[in-house]
């Protein structure tokens, strides 16, 4: 099942700034059915249940799944270690572990630090008691990492910032610009969805069986769900 991305409920100027930035970013493609498509025509796939995108299996039967609650930065390291331990225990992913850990770490940073900060800046106050959910599914061939941002700010503000021209981004972007660059450097596909006012999710896919050289030739996909 696929749904057409349609309508815009976020700040349009900011949204188009984001899209234009993405379109100019080398290595980012809107990729559908083995064909490059116009960004306005990109369809969303796999997200059968957008309120709980990892509820339905993304991988074939036999995949291992783990979910973790992220509450604050203080429990980030502990959660990260638990997830990595689980992945290592169940599969032979050690060879690509460094890249995967880096990306999960960056997603966590965005969910726990950047997104709440961006939410506060644009007037969406984080609600007390809400936490982020990190989920992962993996086999020996690939791994999916999912992140939920309950403030819905990841895409609306923080992620758009990440794609401003890099230049001397060190001083102008906090950690977010480099964080997104790290994510894009390492994962095969990156999916981002936003449902303003409710939640934002991000999902990253890694192919574990490809060599680094082959991995680099796989186009990254950025499929956007904007109901």
């Amino acid at each position: 099942m696929r749904r057409q991305a349609s309508g815009l409920k976020v700040n349009e100027a900011r949204w188009y700034e984001f899209l234009n930035s993405v379109a100019k970013t080398p290595g980012i493609y809107f990729y559908q059915d083995n064909t490059l498509v116009k960004r306005e025509e990109a369809l969303v796939e796999r997200f059968l249940n957008k309120h709980d995108p990892w509820h339905d299996p993304w991988l074939l039967d036999g995949a291992v799944r783990e979910s973790y609650k992220l509450k604050t930065v203080d429990n980030k390291s502990e959660t990260l270690e638990s997830l990595i331990h689980a992945i290592q225990k169940h599969s032979g992913t050690d060879q690509k572990r460094r890249n995967i850990v880096t990306v999960i770490d960056e997603l966590m940073l965005n969910a726990l630090i950047s997104a709440p900060r961006a939410a506060a800046e644009i007037g969406i106050q984080p609600k007390l008691g809400e936490s982020c959910l990190l989920a992962a599914e993996w086999t020996d061939e690939q791994i999916w990492v999912h992140m939920q941002d309950p403030w819905g700010a990841f895409l609306r503000d923080n992620f758009a910032k990440s794609f401003r021209p890099l230049g001397n981004h060190v001083e102008t972007h906090g950690h977010s610009g480099r964080g997104m660059q790290i994510i894009l450097e390492s994962c095969t596909d990156l999916y981002i969805g936003s449902e303003p006012g409710k939640l934002t999710w991000v999902a990253a896919r890694f192919d574990l069986v490809l060599s680094n050289v082959e991995h680099d030739k796989v186009p990254k996909r950025l499929l956007l769900d904007m109901p």
Binding site: V101, T102, D105, E106, L109, I113, V170, G174, H175, S176, R178, G179, I182
Partner: peptide, 12 residues
Amino acid sequence: SRVNSAGIQKWI
């Protein structure tokens, strides 16, 4: 073992 983007900022 690990350097993330927040760490890069601290390093710089």
